[in-house]
């Protein structure tokens, strides 16, 4: 991505500052609401861009798809991703003003309510209150507990409150966060927490990288840093359609997911099974309100009946049906380029999937990472 000159940077920073501060005095609304329009418009912008990248992947000749798809997708993602980092810096005022406040209000990728959902169900924490009362009482103190999770990792240790349950909650939050970040490759005990080496595949992931991936894996209702917002949109609007199993006769680029699942039989079940592997929903099933627009498969949450229900159907498939899965199969099994080259491409793709928030237990990520490592 091209560098932004200082004047433009300063101009946009002040424009955002002026807009947000003016808006909040004009409307007498809480500060946290200002900035949401910029944020939502950015989300739309990234969405349109990701869609146009997806449609740009189509070839006039279907037969070239397996060899050409990755050759076009990976550079497009690199460009998108590096641009996203630049925009993240350019609009850092929005990150600081709007995103951070939203996180403080428990609208971030890992909310205290996610942790509490576990906590109130735990038999080790019996309560005379009903679960709802308990939850309501604790929700009232959450804002204080949530300091600035991103800047320091977790700074809840500084809370000096006399309530023991707050301590317990803070501890639960820390444990949960470490556990989730571990699934994104962060090892808090690793001595080397610096940036990765130049190898195609990294063995260590920094805290910031893991958290960015965890953010990108969140549902669309969660407020995350602008760079991660772009990656999440890339997942929703470009990667997930490429991973999706088309229904019936394959139609390129236009696959609609039916979330209702009524009466669609195996096709819907297969799609939802795939969707389970995509988003980081299962670790965050806290019932955050998701926006209806464009959140695609992550909205399939709650379909727990699908977990065991459709496993046999996928085994009947003769080969991968998703566009990306076919391209990967070709890369790993058919492609005649030197192995080092194929490993490099597989590593780049694995990296892309992680960055946009496709979970490690997704079959394609597993396949790619074992190819790269093995």
């Amino acid at each position: 991505a091209p560098a932004i000159d200082m004047q433009l940077y300063a101009g946009i920073h002040s424009a955002c500052y002026n807009y947000i501060t003016t808006q909040s005095t004009d409307t007498h609304k809480p500060d946290a609401n200002s900035g949401s329009d910029i944020y939502n418009q950015l989300d739309k912008y990234f969405s349109e861009l990701a869609r146009s990248i997806l449609s740009g992947l189509d070839t006039p000749d279907n037969s070239a798809e397996e060899t050409e798809l990755l050759a076009r997708l990976l550079p497009a993602f690199q460009r998108f991703s590096s641009g996203a980092q630049t925009v993240n810096r350019l609009l850092n005022y929005v990150n600081r003003h709007y995103v951070r406040r939203a996180i403080d209000e428990d609208k971030g990728w890992l909310g205290m309510h996610d942790v509490m959902a576990d906590f109130v169900r735990s038999p080790s924490a019996p309560s005379p209150l009903s679960i709802e009362e308990e939850k309501a009482a604790r929700m009232a103190s959450i804002a204080k507990l949530l300091g600035s999770p991103r800047s320091t990792g977790i700074n809840l240790t500084t809370v000096t409150d006399d309530s023991p349950s707050r301590e317990t909650l803070a501890q639960k939050y820390r444990e949960r966060k470490v556990a989730v970040l571990a699934t994104w490759g962060y090892d808090p005990n690793a001595s080397d927490s610096g940036s990765s080496s130049g190898t195609a595949f990294r063995s260590t992931t920094t805290l910031a990288e893991a958290e960015a991936a965890a953010e990108a894996a969140s549902e669309s209702g969660r407020v995350i840093l602008i760079g991660s917002l772009a990656h999440r949109r890339f997942r929703f609007d470009c990667v997930e359609p490429l991973l999706a199993i088309p229904k019936g006769v394959k139609k390129k680029g236009k696959k609609k997911k039916k979330n209702g699942g009524q009466g669609q039989g195996t096709e819907v079940a297969e799609d939802e099974k795939l969707a389970e592997g995509l988003a980081g929903v299962s670790l965050q099933a806290g019932g955050a309100s998701s926006q209806a627009a464009g959140s695609s498969s992550s909205q399939a949450g709650g379909s727990s009946s699908q977990i065991g229900g459709s496993s046999t159907q996928q085994q009947d498939l003769p080969g991968p049906k998703g566009r990306l899965a076919r391209a990967v199969k070709h890369l790993l099994e058919v492609d005649e380029r030197p192995e080092t080259e194929r490993i490099r491409i597989a590593g780049e793709l694995a990296d892309m999937l992680r960055k946009v928030g496709v979970k490690i237990d997704h079959p394609l990520r597993k396949k790619l990472e074992s190819f790269v490592v093995g």
Partner: peptide, 19 residues
């Protein structure tokens, strides 16, 4: 207004994001 702000931001976004 928001439109004015966005009209200011958009060209920068395009410059950064578009190939």
């Amino acid at each position: 207004s928001f439109q004015t702000l966005w009209a200011y931001i958009l060209p920068a976004l395009d410059k950064i994001m578009l190939p």
